[in-house]
Design a protein around this nucleic acid. Structure first.
Length: 289
DNA sequence: CACTTGACCTGTCCGC
DNA sequence: TGCGGACAGGTCAAGT
């Protein structure tokens, strides 16, 4: 569920809090979710200072001044929540935030900093992970070598978008949008929303989409991602930002989880089908195959 | 080789 | 009310 806008929202929040913090302690259960040897964590994380928080695709990168980086993927139900020391105890926490309620039963990793503030990695379904590696090796990870361009990058053009989509000419457009090696950061929510915006049926084969509709999809995808970042991302169940608060984009969604409701453009009832193995939402009138 | 399906997990919801 | 099964969806590995 955390897709580009959600991960970007977490990144923005963490970069307000984390730079210059010194790590004092790292606790974790669930070795599969943080597979590094304890000795390496002790040597390269404990005592180190955080220098920067970055994002690439749906992956968060927390750089340390030990020349190591914590690489974090939230997958579907991961959360990264920062809690300042004074927020730990007692009442007074906003009821719409997880802050003050952590750790809880889905807490997998806790970073404690020298000023007693803490960073919690929560993950109900344990699909997410944290791993430590030298900063210079991050770009050599298989995932980063193959991942496509950032759709919101200033130099990402409609032409580039169309060319990359056409590499997968035999496939349905939804499957292609979800393919991280084509375009980075798009998941189920924004695939559905951007296709509705461009009036394209999710199962349409890429080579059957006219150029003008590809341009519309480029525009629609960028608009949807930008609006979602502005709204703090989408919260269906689990997602929260670095302050433990939910995002409000789904209030503005046109099709995602809106099956049975009228299309905001034409009034036709939104339906849910299966495409690329995922629940897929569309307006059968606006998005003809 | 390109595409699809299953595995990884847990919690929730639905029908019987 | 209890219980089994479907479902949620990001990514990799395995299968077709």
């Amino acid at each position: 569920m955390p897709e580009l806008p959600e991960v970007e929202t977490v990144r923005a929040g963490l970069s307000r809090f984390l730079p210059r913090k010194q790590v004092q302690d790292v606790w974790h259960d669930w070795p599969k979710g943080f597979p590094n040897a304890l000795a390496d964590v002790q040597q390269f994380v404990v005592g180190a200072h955080i220098t920067e928080v970055r994002r690439r695709a749906k992956v968060l990168l927390i750089d340390l001044d030990s020349a190591y980086t914590l690489v974090i993927h939230l997958k579907m139900t991961g959360q990264l929540v920062y809690q300042a020391e004074h927020e730990r105890f007692g009442a007074g926490h906003p009821s719409d935030s997880l802050v003050g309620k952590l750790p809880d039963k889905s807490t997998r990793v806790i970073f404690t900093f020298a000023d007693s503030s803490r960073l919690f990695f929560n993950d109900q379904r344990k699909f997410g992970w944290v791993r430590l590696m030298p900063t210079t090796e991050v770009e050599n990870l298989d995932f980063f070598r193959k991942v496509g361009p950032e759709p919101l990058a200033a130099d990402f053009t409609p032409r580039q978008f169309a060319e990359r989509l056409m590499r997968r000419r035999g496939s349905g457009i939804k499957a292609v949008l979800l393919d991280q090696t084509v375009i980075a950061g798009v998941g189920n929510i924004y695939a559905d929303e951007s296709l509705w915006g461009a009036k394209i049926h999710p199962l349409t084969l890429v080579q059957d989409i006219p150029p003008r509709k590809l341009t519309a999809l480029y525009t629609s995808l960028r608009a949807v991602l930008e609006l979602s970042i502005q709204k703090g991302g989408s919260t269906d169940r689990n997602y929260v930002n670095a302050e433990g608060k939910r995002g409000s984009y789904l209030t503005f969604a046109n099709v995602f989880r809106r099956q049975g409701q009228p299309c905001s453009r034409c009034g036709t009832t939104i339906i849910k089908i299966r495409a690329a193995g995922r629940g897929t939402h569309l307006c059968p009138h606006c998005q003809k195959q």
